[in-house]
Design a protein around this nucleic acid. Structure first.
Lengths: 200, 200
DNA sequence: CCTTTTTCGGAACAGGTTGTTTAGTTATGA
DNA sequence: TCATAACTAAACAACCTGTTCCGAAAAAGG
């Protein structure tokens, strides 16, 4: 599910080329937004032959993913904040996106495409699901209602992120986080409680 | 916000052309999914000259919107179910999408693009916002936390719709609705109660 | 050091898309 | 009936994608 296991090539030329292309994508995203970037843009910016590009990536999307996977680590770890609090990653996430406003906006906002959002949703759904499973007694086969809860939570979170990145919502990371938790947590805890109460 | 006020042309040729193009879009969406449909596809299917198309619409997106606006009415009215229950439109919505599975999947699923989802989100956000405002004492200037709540709710709802339409979620409309309400309503009511409690 | 292998670059290519413009034809409403 | 508005067909420039070819340059290895 997480694509090619990323392993550094031993050939310096290859490393240089791939790095140049990834960097070009980031630069261009900041300029025009992800959707508007073309392969031709990429090879010009990276100063790389057209044939060379297609020797390394099939798509501009593949370039994106190869860069985006690094970001997925950010959600998992931060073991300091690994409290018993549900969804402890949200505040750090809001804060991190606040620091990286420009990139976040270019990636998640109106001009930043489906691919990014879809990938982000995937990654986050996995994290949320693991957390909820951990909060339930073990043996239980995860009920369908859990999947739906995961989808609701990630959907709400991503929607907030998108609007916020877009500038349609003016608030501090702390305010964003508080609003999110206020809406989502009560219901989520109720669902969990009901699951614990009636193990099947 | 809702584009051009749609008013039927008096010229039969115009009505015929526009109808043919809209219908062609629906047909093609069912075949290849929205994203994959090109303007060239549309004019072939509708049997309409290229220049004619651009005389009526600027985009394939505009065609989509002009068709989609009809759907927006479906959310507003249904005065029968206009109960005091919060978000009373959700169950009818799930049910309607269940009847129109094929189209819903082609529009909302993986192969159906950003534009549809974004527009759907817009339309729904407006409905939700009105409902929440109605549930609050009048004079209050709507607080920012209300906007965030609206975004959370529509984000969660649309996410559910998407996954469901995609076939990743097997459930009846009633089950979908119940899961949605279980997660979202407790928090939503808490937020509303707090707003009522401390009018500013 | 010299040879072999791999990668790179540039350019050209076919195929597809968009949106505009031309000039000639046809349907409509008054 | 008839002027007008809407339609058609075709050609157009501009852009993008993905592939292919070959000579040049860099790495790897004996």
């Amino acid at each position: 599910m997480s694509g090619t296991p990323r392993r550094e090539s031993s050939d310096r030329r290859v490393r240089r080329t791939r790095r140049a292309i990834r960097q070009a994508l980031v630069d261009l995203i900041l300029t025009k937004g992800y959707e508007a970037v073309t392969v031709t843009d990429l090879i010009n910016r990276a100063d790389v032959g057209r044939s060379t590009f297609y020797a390394h990536f099939t798509d501009k999307e593949e370039v994106l993913f190869s860069s985006l996977d690094e970001l997925s680590d950010l959600l998992r770890l931060d073991p300091a904040s690994r409290s018993d609090r549900l969804l402890s990653f949200t505040l750090p996430m809001f804060e991190h996106l606040h620091e990286q406003r420009r990139l976040a906006r270019a990636l998640l906002g109106r001009r930043g495409g489906t691919a990014v959002v879809a990938r982000g949703e995937q990654i986050m759904a996995a994290v949320v699901r693991d957390e909820l499973l951990a909060a339930l007694p073990e043996g239980n086969s995860p009920p369908a209602s859990l999947d739906m809860a995961v989808i609701c939570v990630t959907g709400a979170f991503m929607a907030l992120l998108r609007k916020w990145a877009d500038g349609e919502l003016l608030a501090t990371p702390a305010e964003m986080d508080a609003a999110f938790r206020a809406v989502v947590l009560p219901g989520l805890e109720a669902v969990l409680a009901e699951q614990r109460g009636r193990p099947m």
